[in-house]
Simulated assay, not measured.
Amino acid sequence: MAKGRPAAADLLVLAVGIGLLAWFARRQLRLRDPLLDVRLFRNRPFTAAALVTLMAVLAAGAALYLVSLWLQYVHGYSPFEAGLRTLP
């Protein structure tokens, strides 16, 4: 396999994920009382706020992951000790 090319299994997982997301959105559009009104995403400010919130949560998770690695590799803590030190 060429370097940088996705494997067939990766593409299959991506296709299944997109299919499940489309199925969920379609089902929510048809329900009388949906879990998530997907029509809200037509509103640009709502979509922008949702994406910014998603990016903030991903950044916080990445920072917490990197802090735990730093505690383990630089300070020599065990994974358990690093986890205890990163508890909120």
Rank of each mutant, 00 (worst) to 15 (best):
A2P: 15
A2W: 09
A2C: 04
K3N: 05
G4A: 08
G4V: 07
G4E: 13
R5S: 01
R5V: 09
P6H: 07
A7M: 11
A7H: 13
A7E: 12
A8M: 08
A8I: 13
A9Q: 08
D10Y: 06
L11V: 02
L11C: 11
L12E: 14
L12F: 13
L12I: 07
V13P: 02
L14W: 04
L14F: 04
A15Q: 08
A15S: 10
A15R: 09
A15K: 11
A15D: 08
V16E: 09
V16W: 05
G17T: 10
I18C: 03
I18R: 09
G19T: 05
G19S: 12
L20H: 03
L21H: 01
L21G: 07
L21K: 05
W23A: 15
W23N: 02
F24Y: 10
F24T: 05
R26C: 05
R27S: 13
R27L: 13
R27F: 13
Q28M: 14
Q28L: 12
R30A: 15
R30I: 04
L31E: 15
D33V: 14
D33Q: 14
P34C: 11
L35D: 11
L36Q: 10
L36R: 10
L36T: 12
L36W: 15
D37L: 12
V38I: 12
V38D: 00
V38R: 02
R39G: 14
R39T: 11
R39V: 05
L40I: 05
L40M: 12
F41W: 04
F41K: 01
R42E: 08
P45W: 00
F46A: 09
F46N: 00
A49L: 15
A49E: 09
A50D: 01
L51P: 00
L51K: 11
L51Y: 09
L51C: 12
V52L: 14
L54V: 03
A56W: 06
A56P: 01
L58M: 12
L58Q: 08
A59V: 11
A60D: 02
G61S: 04
G61P: 00
A63E: 00
L64M: 09
Y65D: 13
Y65C: 05
L66N: 02
L66Y: 12
V67K: 10
S68E: 13
L71I: 03
L71K: 04
L71S: 04
L71A: 04
Q72K: 01
Y73W: 15
Y73R: 15
Y73E: 10
H75Q: 11
H75D: 10
G76F: 10
G76M: 06
G76Q: 06
Y77S: 03
Y77E: 04
Y77D: 06
S78E: 01
S78Y: 00
P79A: 13
P79V: 09
F80A: 15
F80W: 13
E81C: 03
E81R: 06
A82S: 15
A82Y: 04
G83H: 14
L84P: 03
L84T: 03
L84G: 03
L84Q: 15
R85G: 02
T86R: 14
T86G: 03
L87Q: 07
L87N: 01
P88F: 13
P88Q: 05
